[in-house]
């Protein structure tokens, strides 16, 4: 039989590989068992440590507002066996500590209400809440301080916001812009409430209006304070819009004088008044709804050769855009001469 060196080497390498793998398994198994035994020994010992829990304050008095920033985290110093400590620290999740501050006793100092709570007084309550299997040694901080301000309700006026309205050609606002409510109750810290006299909304910008507008606008306070609450959150604003047309009417000029023995005659004695009126109201317009006149006083007559024609009365639903002519000449004479 012929000796083959290469075949001999290959057979030896395979045998060694099998031995090597077996040794690794044994080693790892021993290591694992050692760790477990080590862990059990460690968990069996007593440990001292601290765990942080977030605080949630409950039963805040309705008529008071917390204005300071009390601690939001309690640090519990614990003594326990390793396993318990481990489960409290790492398996408790985001569990919070609820602290009832509804029964605090307050002391009024400079217009605010102060109070404090010793955390040692609520340690048993905390242990119960967290189902701590450890011994609670201490709590940090040892005192929680609170500063409250009394809450106040006040009724304030609602005012229209700044308006930037633009209408389509021939369209205009028709009557008054209305809104409701006209007042709201504001609830908040007394010191803030006292400074609020009105509320409004953001500026309203509307372009090319041709229909009535009904808007719900969020109330905004002139003072920015996130503790403020309003009885209504929105204001309903109505902007009436109508199509307008132009009309004209010839009207006599009346004279309003302070000179009893003299009479004044104007030339012309009539003017043409051009006005804008909503289509709905066009037929309502008549001559008797207008009154135009000139005022004259003796001291003005020498200074002015013409008198301005004034609008003495006009219907509320029209807008006079032109009086032609705007000024008139006049002759003044004794009443029995001038007719």
């Amino acid at each position: 039989m012929k000796f083959n060196f290469l075949t001999f080497v290959r057979r030896n390498r395979k045998a060694k590989d099998k031995i090597s793998k077996r040794e690794v398994y044994v080693f790892l198994s021993c290591l694992g068992i050692s760790i477990i035994i080590w862990g059990l020994i460690k968990f069996d010992k007593l440990y001292y440590g601290s765990i942080e829990f977030p605080i949630v304050y409950t039963n805040i008095p309705d008529n008071k507002l917390l204005i300071n920033y009390p601690d939001s985290v309690l640090t519990l110093n614990l003594q326990s066996q390793g396993f318990d400590f481990f489960s409290d620290k790492y398996l408790s999740g985001d569990q919070a500590i609820y602290i009832n501050i509804g029964d605090l006793k307050f002391e009024k100092v400079n217009g605010v209400y102060k109070s404090f709570l010793l955390t040692s007084q609520i340690s048993s309550n905390i242990s119960r809440q967290l189902s701590l299997s450890n011994k609670l040694i201490s709590i940090s901080p040892d005192t929680l301080s609170f500063v409250f301000e009394s809450m106040k309700i006040k009724s304030v006026a609602v005012i229209l916001p700044d308006l930037d309205l633009d209408y389509e050609k021939q369209y205009q606002q028709y009557g008054s812009i209305t809104f409701k409510p006209d007042s709201v109750r504001v609830y908040g810290p007394a010191s803030v409430i006292e400074k609020i006299d009105f509320v409004s909304t953001d500026k309203i910008e509307l372009k090319k209006l041709k229909n009535n507008q009904e808007l719900s606008m969020k109330i905004i306070s002139p003072i920015n304070n996130n503790k403020l609450r309003f009885s209504e959150n929105e204001i309903q604003i109505s902007i009436p819009v109508s199509k307008y047309t132009e009309g004209s009417i010839e009207l006599p000029i009346i004279t309003i004088d302070s000179l009893s023995e003299f009479k004044i005659k104007t030339y012309p004695d009539k003017v043409l008044v051009t006005y804008l009126v909503a289509l709905n109201d066009f037929k309502r317009v008549n001559v008797d709804m207008f009154q135009l006149g000139v005022y004259y006083k003796s001291d003005e007559l020498s200074a002015n050769k013409t008198l301005k024609v004034e609008i003495l009365h006009q219907p509320p639903f029209v807008e006079i855009v032109k009086i032609d002519p705007e000024r008139v000449e006049y002759i003044i004479g004794k009443r029995h001469i001038i007719n």
Partner: peptide, 10 residues
């Protein structure tokens, strides 16, 4: 209009 002014002058 001018006539009316003349009339006012009598």
């Amino acid at each position: 209009l001018v006539s009316k002014i003349f009339e006012a002058l009598g």
